[in-house]
């Protein structure tokens, strides 16, 4: 987590020294939904092992930004580089690139007609082409990792929200991605179930996973984030070390937002 400990000035992290070690590089990203200009020129870079937390009021475009990283939303303008490939280039094999980045959603999106085990092994079989045995062993390993080893044969509908979300995380991790995207993954959970999901995410971060996390959990942002990015109205207002921003927000809007949510 502390690998990139050197201080960088707030808001300038996108303009890096051009080395290619970055895992994700977003350049000049714009997104329109019809006439609605949701993202207005975003530049963000993420190095391996970093946790990028994105906060901001609802409607600020933070989920859209996250979904542009694996091109579930197609950027209207700009580039998204992942491991040196330009995902916005039409010739890039998106399906293959997506196997290297897991995404977890607010609404879990488990496949309700399949057991927990099959939820996880489906893509291992059909996308990675793994055999039965290897797929199963990977699934078991990830389920145990999220503390749900005994739920392999349950259907998603039989699990609590927190358990479902942990299965969704296990499903993404089983692909052995190099980047994990979390889109408000605790927002749909009962308050008492939030902790178990955040715990899994924190462990993941401590294990060195590169993550981009859209969240309203300020405690998580402060403790786990390498970088904190505050968005409003489609632009990045502030980016820096979480503790610094929490202690000393530069922007007036950041101040009012933080005082409202903390």
């Amino acid at each position: 987590m502390q690998a990139n400990g050197q201080d960088k000035p707030n808001g300038h992290v996108g303009a890096r020294d051009g080395s290619d070690e970055a895992l994700v590089r977003i350049e000049g990203l714009h997104k329109w939904f019809g006439n609605h200009h949701v993202l207005k020129g975003i530049d963000v870079t993420l190095d391996p092992g970093e946790v990028q937390v994105v906060i901001g009021p609802s409607g600020s475009g933070k989920s859209t930004l996250l979904r542009c990283v694996n091109l579930l939303e197609i950027p209207s303008e700009g580039h998204v580089w992942f491991r040196g490939s330009d995902l916005t280039d039409i010739r890039t094999d998106l399906n293959r690139m997506r196997t290297h980045m897991g995404i977890v959603f607010q609404s879990f999106n488990l496949f309700p007609h399949k057991t927990v085990m099959k939820n996880i092994t489906l893509a291992l079989h059909k996308v990675l082409g793994l055999g039965d045995e290897e797929a199963r062993s990977r699934a078991v390993e990830q389920l145990e990792h999220v503390g749900l080893g005994q739920k392999a044969d349950a259907y998603p509908g039989q699990l609590s929200g927190g358990q479902q979300q942990r299965v969704a995380i296990a499903r993404a991790l089983a692909m052995e991605p190099t980047l994990m995207l979390f889109d408000e993954v605790t927002s749909a959970l009962d308050p008492e179930l939030v902790g178990e999901v955040l715990e899994v995410m924190q462990e993941l971060a401590e294990g060195g996973m590169t993550m981009m996390v859209v969240t309203h959990e300020m405690g998580f942002a402060r403790e786990v984030g390498t970088w904190l990015l505050f968005m409003e109205d489609g632009v990045v207002l502030e980016r820096g070390k979480p503790k610094e921003i929490f202690a000393n927000p530069q922007h007036e809007r950041t101040k009012t937002f933080l005082s409202a949510v903390l």
Partner: peptide, 18 residues
Amino acid sequence: IERGQVEAARGLGMTYLQ
């Protein structure tokens, strides 16, 4: 079927047809 189902599948690297 909720949009999220396709998004989850595509997010795992499946093709549209898969």
